[in-house]
Design a binder for these strands. Sequence first.
DNA 1: CGTTTGCTTGACAGCATTCAACGTTGGTGG
DNA 2: CCACCAACGTTGAATGCTGTCAAGCAAACG
Lengths: 244, 244
Amino acid sequence: MTASLAESPIAALKIACSSCNLRELCLPVGFSKPLLERLDTLVATHRSVRRGETLFRSGDRFEAVYAVRAGFFKTRVSPHGGRDHVTGFQMAGELLGMDGISTDRHTCDAVALEDSQVCLIPYAELERLSREFPELQHQFHKILSREIVCDRVMMFLLGGMRAEERLAAFLLDMTQRLEERGFSPTSLLLRMTREEIGDYLGLKLETVSRCFSKLHDDGVLRVRQRHVQVLDRSALAQLVNEAG
Amino acid sequence: MTASLAESPIAALKIACSSCNLRELCLPVGFSKPLLERLDTLVATHRSVRRGETLFRSGDRFEAVYAVRAGFFKTRVSPHGGRDHVTGFQMAGELLGMDGISTDRHTCDAVALEDSQVCLIPYAELERLSREFPELQHQFHKILSREIVCDRVMMFLLGGMRAEERLAAFLLDMTQRLEERGFSPTSLLLRMTREEIGDYLGLKLETVSRCFSKLHDDGVLRVRQRHVQVLDRSALAQLVNEAG
DNA sequence: CGTTTGCTTGACAGCATTCAACGTTGGTGG
DNA sequence: CCACCAACGTTGAATGCTGTCAAGCAAACG
């Protein structure tokens, strides 16, 4: 099964936005038929990225944004000499690379945390098409704006919450996004290491591990390495809310 | 609406983007004459906001973005019951309110920290005009993208830096933005309290105060209440860089 | 001139980091 | 099949930074 997927060239599968099962999560939410057809011709290129490889790197020329078709990514900045900071995790149906618009160059690395496929959306053509279709224009603006709002939530988390509350918020966010994609919101398989979670939440890996153990002991989670079962979702929510 | 226009002496001044001294910092960077003229008709309304008053509040319907014409703002989220989190400070030439695009409602409060004036840019018309002018479209996208990049820098700061390093980064950012506006980069008058700086940097006001004292004692700053003189800018930069 | 608000400083407590040791897992090659 | 290694994860003890609580001071305002 994995063999047939890996061997078949993605492009040959003729993935089209109009028939993609992610279209109601991704860029084309609620688009009309004519626009969907135009989008199909725009989003013609696809790329496979193996686990551990980068989709783009900080400093690369910005030419396209990417939609995650399958798999899982992290974005990170690596201040030379310093430890990484993970700016986000992206799963199927989410867009990547919009940070590059401002300077025409990417400002972070995008790394696949498992074998993944992305759809390439040429940026110049996206701007051109969105001048023609107000619905596309507005949707793209909404996605950019949502990115800003999510970053603000993250800033609040980093600035105001304690370790256990941060981890609770992280887990709630992950389960919610998984649920939107039709997966169980109570059972998740983490694709990232404790260190990557720490680099995302502004914590050391030991602290992340300790918090997992604490939530396990408190009966909120069942943790076995990267398998996490959420036993008491309301307890997580309470941790996050009490933080305010 | 006509009442507020009448009350506002600003509107009577017939401020136009095409003749605004901030046009090379604000939205219309490098715009052509025809576009500037169209923008003049779009940005027809202006508002005065007195110190302490809000320009918009979380939950308000999103109808326009605002350009700071004069004065100084903070944006904040106030989780009910919890302490404020300041998401940013905005000075002349900067845009406010783009967080509202994603949900059609503002997600934060914008509060004037001194008597201020803003230009109102109706959002629907901005979208319409940017379908006509690719340069406007691209510039708006760049502004949104820059917002994302700045937020990422802030996340790195909150997640990875210690108190003194955060304050150094904050001061460097402020002086740089002041310099771009033609002010001295070594002498600044803070418009916000220690508590507001703390709510922005994820620190308590006492810690902010202590860090100011420390930098003062180290000969990096001269601090007298809200008057700050930067004596050794490279020392600030070094603090920030060593943090990586 | 008194009140309010904001700022500074000290002592102490608490939480996260640091340093270190050990356990687990999965892959590789003998 | 097993041994071994490397990467990842867990846990303990000690340190250190920031928060908390409290007191006093300075500046702004009516």
